[in-house]
């Protein structure tokens, strides 16, 4: 197996994730796209770890999984809060930070 095939798969997933983050309006959908991005990164970590025969890649992939779980928890809590205040999870309508 070539290393580059895994890296390319990961970059495809990464870019699809970015497309999702930018193109989706619904907060939950944006979170799903972020999960795609994180998984792409994980594939990269494990692939490089295998290439250099270093366990660190796998360990950090595990850390990323743990942090992704935390991220989804907090992210969904925020989305719920937005939903409760505005009865919609439309992120394009949240622009009170404008200058």
């Amino acid at each position: 197996m070539l290393l580059v095939q895994f890296l390319l798969l990961s970059s495809v997933l990464f870019c699809i994730g970015i497309y999702g983050v930018l193109a989706r309006k619904n907060g939950v959908m944006v979170l799903m796209s972020i999960e795609l991005i994180l998984n792409a990164v994980n594939i990269n970590l494990v692939a490089f770890g295998t290439m250099t025969n270093n366990i660190a890649g796998e360990v950090f992939a595990l850390f990323v999984i743990a942090i992704a779980a935390a991220e989804v928890g907090v992210g969904l809590a925020i989305v719920l809060l937005i939903f409760r205040n505005r009865s919609s999870v439309d992120l394009s309508s949240i622009d009170s930070m404008k200058g």
Partner: peptide
């Protein structure tokens, strides 16, 4: 500058960042 860039649209910010 204010009206074009600074509209509080997070998608736009994200797009610019990426």
């Amino acid at each position: 500058t204010r009206t074009i860039i600074q509209r509080g649209k997070i998608h736009q910010y994200a797009a610019i960042m990426f």
